[in-house]
Write a protein that binds this DNA or RNA. Structure first.
Lengths: 217, 217
DNA sequence: TTCTTACTTTAGGTAAGATTAAAAATTAGT
DNA sequence: ACTAATTTTTAATCTTACCTAAAGTAAGAA
C-alpha cells in the first residue's frame, strides 16, 4: 500500500496538472505546505516507483499508473464528502477536511458500499466530478460567475474547495451547487458583482465570484 | 495528535491489562507482531509522555491519561464496527479490520454522529462494551460457553474478535451475540461440545467454545 | 549458590519523510 | 550576453518506528 504521503503528492500533482503542462517543485511545496527540498526528494522516489515522469529542473507529470492512483484517491475523497454530508449530516464546510483524512484509509469495499448507497453519484457536494471505479471522469467546463453574461439565468455547478472559510460562507448564504443564479451587474476593475439567487439580491466581491462556477441553463 | 502506532500500543496494553496486573514487553510484542526491542523503545517514549508507568524488566501499566486515550480508541473502534455492520452492511468478519484502520482517523464529530445515528449503543456487534464519551465502560462478566452448565438456557453475549476466520465461521453458522444457546453435552478432556441453538444441534471444538461468551437468561 | 534459560534491554542500523543551509541551474532584465 | 534573481537540487540532520545481534537480568533447578 502506498503511504498517505505518497497519495497526497499524487493527488496534488493531479490537481496542479489541470492548469499547467508540467508541475513545478515549488507549486507542490506550496500546496502541501512543506519545503521544496522535501518535494525534490519525494519526486525522485515517485519517479523510481514509476508513478511520475520527472526531469530535474523541468517539473513533473503523472504517469498512467500515477494518474490511476490519483483518480482513486479523488474518488474516495469526493464520495466521502458526499457521504459525510448526505448520510451523516456534516456541514459543507467540514466535509473536506474529514474526507482528506479518511480517503487514505477506507477500503475499496467501504467506497463501493457508500457509492451504492448514494446511487452512484457523479458529483461531490461541492460540485467536483467523482471518478468512476474505472477511472473515468466526466469532463465538465464551467464558467466562473465573474465571466457570466449579465441578466442571464445560470445554475451554480461547483464551488472551489481550497478555502474553508469561503466554503463556510457559501454555505451560510446559500450559494451552493444546484442553485439558480443571475448576475445583475459587474462593477468595473474587477469590482464586486450584484447577483440574484433564491429570490434575493446580493453583492459579492470579485475574489468570491471567481470561486463560484456556473453553467448556462 | 498521537500517532497511529502510539494509539495501537495503548490499545494493546489496555487489552492485555485486563488479564494481568503488569503487561510484559513480550506480550505486547506478540500482540503487535513486532520485535521485543521495538517495544522497549516505544515503552520508554510512552513513559516520557506520561501515558504509561514503566519499570524496566517489571512490565508496564497505563496511567490515567493513557487509559483515557485507550478508551477513546476503543470507543471509536467499537462504534465503527457497529456502524459498518448496521449502516453499511459489512459482514461481521470484515468489520474488525476496517475499524482497526479507521479508528485512528475519524474525528470526534464523526464518532458522535454515528453514535447518535445508532442510538447510543452499548455493545459492538461482537458483544464488546462501547466506552462512553466520558470513558465509562459497562463492566460485564460473561462465561465462556465451555464453562456453561448442561441443559441450561443461555444467551450469547460476546464472541472473541482475535481470529478473523473464527469470526467468519461464527457468522456463517449463526453463533452470534443475541442468539439463545444450550449445551447438551461436553466430551471429557477438553473435548468438543454439543450445543443447541436456533433450533438445531451442532458440535463445536473446545477451542471454539472458549471464544463464545454467554450469560444465563 | 551457581547454572541455565527465558525475558528484556542496549547498541547500532535502516527507511520514510521531513528539515535547514549551501550550491547549482535556470530564467529574466538590461 | 552578463549579471541578478529565482528555482531547484544537494548535503547533512532529525524523528518515528521498525530491525538484528549482543549483552544484561531474574528466577528456578541442581
Amino acid at each position: 500500500m502506498l503511504s498517505q504521503s505518497v497519495q497526497d503528492y499524487l493527488k496534488t500533482i493531479y490537481k496542479l496538472q489541470e492548469n499547467t503542462s508540467a508541475v513545478s517543485t515549488t507549486q507542490i511545496a506550496k500546496e502541501l505546505d512543506i519545503s521544496g527540498a522535501s518535494v525534490t526528494g519525494m519526486l525522485k522516489r515517485l519517479a523510481a516507483m514509476k508513478l511520475v515522469d520527472y526531469n530535474s529542473y523541468k517539473g513533473v507529470r503523472l504517469t498512467e499508473d500515477g494518474t490511476k492512483v490519483a483518480l482513486e484517491i479523488l474518488r474516495h475523497h469526493r464520495l466521502l464528502e458526499l457521504y459525510l454530508k448526505e448520510s451523516l449530516g456534516f456541514s459543507l464546510a467540514k466535509v473536506h477536511d474529514e474526507a482528506c483524512r479518511l480517503e487514505h484509509y477506507v477500503s475499496d469495499e467501504f467506497v463501493e458500499r457508500i457509492d451504492d448507497l448514494l446511487g452512484r453519484p457523479e458529483y461531490s457536494p461541492l460540485g467536483n466530478p467523482i471518478p468512476t471505479k474505472e477511472g473515468r471522469i466526466p469532463e465538465s467546463s464551467y464558467l466562473p460567475v465573474t465571466d457570466a453574461e449579465l441578466n442571464k439565468q445560470y445554475i451554480i455547478k461547483r464551488i472551489a474547495d481550497d478555502n474553508h472559510e469561503m466554503v463556510a460562507y457559501f454555505e451560510e448564504v446559500g450559494l451552493i451547487p444546484g442553485v439558480d443564479i443571475m448576475v445583475l451587474s459587474k462593477a468595473p476593475f474587477n469590482g464586486p458583482l450584484t447577483i440574484k439567487y433564491s429570490g434575493k439580491e446580493y453583492i459579492v466581491g470579485n475574489e468570491v465570484g471567481r470561486n463560484i462556477y456556473v453553467d448556462a441553463i
